[in-house]
Each structure stands twice: as C-alpha cells, then as structure tokens.
C-alpha cells in the first residue's frame, strides 16, 4: 500500500516542520506550505489524503481552503487548526464539512490518532 499523503498549510513554519518530523517517522509523506495558494496548486497536481490547514492566514482564509478542497477533492480529509477558536468558527468549519477542528496548542498524539481513524474510515464527529 502506498504511503498516505498529508499536506500541512500554516504560515507558522514550525507547525509544518514538527508535523512533518513526527508524521514521517510513522510512515506518512508530508508536504508543508506557508501559504494557501501554492498549496492549492500542488493539490491539483497531486492527490493528498489529508489536508491540515490553519484557519487564519495572510493570503487565503482557511475556510476558503476547506471549501475548495471539499468541492474539488471530496475524498480528501480536511482538519482545521487554529489559534483563535470560538464556537462560531468551529460551527462554521463543521458546516463546511471539515473533518475535524483542533484548537492550538495541538496535541500531536491526538492529531495522529484522529488522522489514523479518519483514514481507516471513521466518521467525522457529529
């Protein structure tokens, strides 16, 4: 079986770097992006199993990324992370069919478990 591909989009470089470091040891392929635009372009040439995106970024809003990904690649799982979570944004994220929503600081083990579950066909939380 091919290695599962994960994309991380966050303008905080460290987030991508750490996810890449920990997830690659578990056998995933991770690509990290600081901006949404190049990430979306990459998505169009390469299928990813999971997209982890920050909610608030300079160029394109994380919600926008979620919308585009869910429209163009419905099979791709999307996990939102944000440093500024409130009820409204998480509700909106789920309404836009996000597969999960993680407030920062993110617990990597939780993220791993969740991604593993998602890839094994677990339903997204209600």
């Amino acid at each position: 079986m091919d290695a599962k591909k994960i994309m991380v989009i966050d303008d905080e470089n460290i987030v991508g770097k750490m996810i890449k470091a920990t997830f690659e040891r578990d056998g995933y392929v991770v690509e990290k992006f600081l901006n949404a635009k190049p990430a979306l372009e990459r998505l169009r040439e390469q299928k990813f199993d999971v997209v982890i995106t920050d909610l608030k970024m300079r160029d394109v809003d994380g919600m926008e990324v979620l919308k585009i990904v869910k429209k163009e690649f419905p099979a791709t799982k999307v996990i939102m992370i944000t440093a500024f979570a409130n009820m409204d944004t998480s509700v909106e994220a789920f309404r836009k069919k996000a597969d999960d929503f993680f407030p920062k600081p993110v617990k990597i083990s939780d993220l791993k478990a969740r991604i593993k579950g998602l890839l094994e066909g677990e339903e997204r939380p209600a």
């Binding site: 920990t22 040891r25 944000t82 440093a83 500024f84 407030p103």
Partner: peptide, 28 residues
C-alpha cells in the same frame, strides 16, 4: 484581544509542538 489570542496562541502552539516532537523523537 481577539488578535492577541491568535498572536499568543501561535507561539504557544509552536512551543507545545516542538516539545512534543522533541519528546517523541528524542532518541533519533
């Protein structure tokens, strides 16, 4: 405040993630 939460949340998350990765990958 909204901005500050975001602004503080990011470095906090970074520290947390670095620490978690550090612990997990320590031996390697």
């Amino acid at each position: 405040t909204a901005g500050v939460a975001h602004e503080l949340g990011n470095p906090l998350n970074n520290i947390s993630m670095v620490a978690q990765t550090f612990l997990e990958l320590y031996d390697d």
